[in-house]
Each structure stands twice: as structure tokens, then as C-alpha cells.
């Protein structure tokens, strides 16, 4: 055994025998039914990581703009293609979800909205708001474009 972490996983049962300590299963898998709490939580992480990848697109967009007129025209064209639009729709949904669920997290941090009923309700509100905001964004987007 090399690590303290590994040592902490070993304990003794009431007979004094060495046993490995039980671990609670991961929130996603066969052990638990899908729940509002676990699903909105993992979705917050997934959208966060997706937005992290999306910042590479933002970087590319800004760097192209600062490089040359043609380079910016190329990236604008790429973003306006079907593949680009698909990426951007995913990106805006991830952004609005992370934004709305982030507000939910900040509310929890201030001690509000923790009750089971409220948590379920505001989870659905977050989902609905993200869909509505994404749809609204693209409606305005196609109108001004």
C-alpha cells in the first residue's frame, strides 16, 4: 500500500478482521434511479466542460478577427454553415443551462430553495428557461442576421 488514500479505504469490522470500507455508488448508474438533483447536477458539470471547449471557439473567433479580414470572413462563414450553427445551438443551450442552473446554485448557497418540493420545481424551471432562452436567442438571431 503506497498511499494514505488507499490506507483510508481499509478498516476493521466488529470481529477485528480487515475489510475494505464500503463506498456509496456513483450517482449515475444502476444503483440509483434518475433524479432531478443528480441529473441537474451532472448536467451542470457537462455543460461547464462543454462551455470550456466552446471557449476555444471564442478564442479562435477573436484571434481570426485580430489577424486578417479574410480570416475573420472565413470563421464567420464556418460558424454560419450547418455544422457551425449546430455547434452554436449546442453552445448557446449549454450557456443558458449553466447560467440558469448557476443562479439555482447561488440561491442554494444563500440557503434558499433546498426543500425537496422547491428543488424539483426550480429544476424544471431551469430546464424550461434554458429551452426558452435558447429558442428566443435563435429567433432574434435569425431575425437580425
Amino acid at each position: 500500500m503506497k498511499h494514505v488514500r488507499a490506507a483510508q479505504m481499509i478498516g476493521r469490522n466488529s470481529e477485528g478482521d480487515l475489510v475494505s470500507r464500503p463506498l456509496s455508488p456513483f450517482m449515475i448508474g444502476t444503483a440509483y434511479r434518475a433524479q432531478m438533483s443528480s441529473m441537474t447536477s451532472i448536467a451542470h458539470r457537462i455543460t461547464g466542460c462543454a462551455l470550456g471547449v466552446g471557449t476555444l471557439l471564442l478564442t479562435l473567433w477573436l484571434v481570426c478577427a485580430a489577424t486578417a479580414a479574410q480570416a475573420f470572413a472565413d470563421i464567420q462563414g464556418l460558424l454560419a454553415s450547418w455544422l457551425g450553427l449546430l455547434m452554436l445551438i449546442g453552445f448557446t443551450f449549454a450557456l443558458f443551462y449553466h447560467f440558469c442552473n448557476g443562479i439555482r446554485h447561488l440561491a442554494w448557497d444563500s440557503g434558499r430553495g433546498f426543500e425537496l418540493g422547491a428543488m424539483h420545481r426550480n429544476g424544471w424551471i431551469v430546464l424550461a428557461a434554458s429551452v426558452i432562452l435558447t429558442a428566443g436567442f435563435w429567433l432574434v438571431g435569425f431575425l437580425v442576421w
Binding site: 478577427a65 486578417a68 479580414a69 475573420f72 470572413a73 464567420q76 454560419a80 448557446t92 450557456l95 447560467f99 448557476g102 443562479i103 446554485h105 447561488l106 436567442f137 432574434v140 438571431g141 437580425v144 442576421w145
Partner: peptide, 28 residues
């Protein structure tokens, strides 16, 4: 940073809409 990003990300979303299909000159 989360609280700072609440208004800033809305500003970003609005500026992306303003810059939809923009040329480099308009972006600059």
C-alpha cells in the same frame, strides 16, 4: 466569478447577436 458572469454573459450573448454575420471592419 459566477456572480460577475451573470451580467457579463448576458452582455456577451447580446454582443454576439449584434455581431452576427459582421465583417472584420464592423467587429473592429
Amino acid at each position: 466569478t459566477a456572480v460577475a458572469l451573470l451580467p457579463l454573459s448576458l452582455y456577451f450573448v447580446a454582443s454576439v447577436l449584434i455581431l452576427a454575420g459582421a465583417t472584420q471592419a464592423r467587429m473592429a
